[in-house]
Amino acid sequence: MLDATRTPPRLPAAPGVGYKAQHFSDLRNAPGPVKWLEIHAENYMGDGGRPHAQLRALRGDFAISVHGVGLSIGGTGPLDPEHLARLKHLIDWLEPASFSEHLAWSTHGAEFLDDLLPLPYTDATLTCVADHIDEVQETLGRQMLLENPSSYLAFAQSTWSETDFLTELVRRTGCGLLLDVNNVFISATNLGYTPTGYLDAYPTAAVGEIHVGGHDEDRDEHGAPLLIDSHGAATADPVWDLLDYTLAQTGPAPVLVEWDNDVPDWATLRSEAERAEHALTSVLAN
């Protein structure tokens, strides 16, 4: 269990964007409402060069959130000690406001499969994930946030609901949560439950950050809707509605616009951040 007194300051309750190198100058000249940036940890694990120089320049103007995609916290095997050491090195020199990872696995034996893969929710996986979170928090000396996945299918062997699983992880480890409302909308649509029902059962008090982002629409072999988490489009209207619903419960929180593929020009991304700012202002007014 984490010692909460060692937790560093949180991200500002304001809009943030996923950082892309092509927006470096725009962010410095015309950031609009953007107060913080999220980077993918693994892209900054080289030894130097432009990626590090850009981070050093940006960290003066923006709070930074480090978002890992390669730790495989939801995997059944041990965490890769080399990767954990690389992560600690990055966190130590960058001193970000937040570190988050996914409830997913991506490493199998010596192979990295470069996707966020799903796990069944059982007593055994719960123990395993909790141990991994403990190890990460102890190694980094700080609280981490855990993100809910976008689900395309369910495991017949699961015995826990996702919201109960996350609630129990928070209780056991003292971790915080990254609530991706786009993922909630995708999973709810794909698995046939209501997104607001999910949010009502979700431990909102533990939320340290919120994600919104775009998805693609498809259908499965039975004709049922199948939403794909693409991060390659503007956030859909029902996801913005879900953000309002979430903020009404959490109060103002850091809201990140994720757009990782087919990255748009700065004006387009900034207008998405402005929409997030509007949602944050509205929740204060109400």
Binding site: D115, L117, P118, Y152, L153, A154, F155, A156, Q157, N190, L191, G192, Y193, D220, E221, H222, A224, L226, I228
Partner: peptide
């Protein structure tokens, strides 16, 4: 085996997403 859609029906296309 053991992968289903929300209603408990087996699914191939959903695995194909991964």
């Amino acid at each position: 085996e053991g992968l289903t859609d929300g209603a408990g029906a087996p699914t191939t296309k959903r695995f194909d997403v991964y």
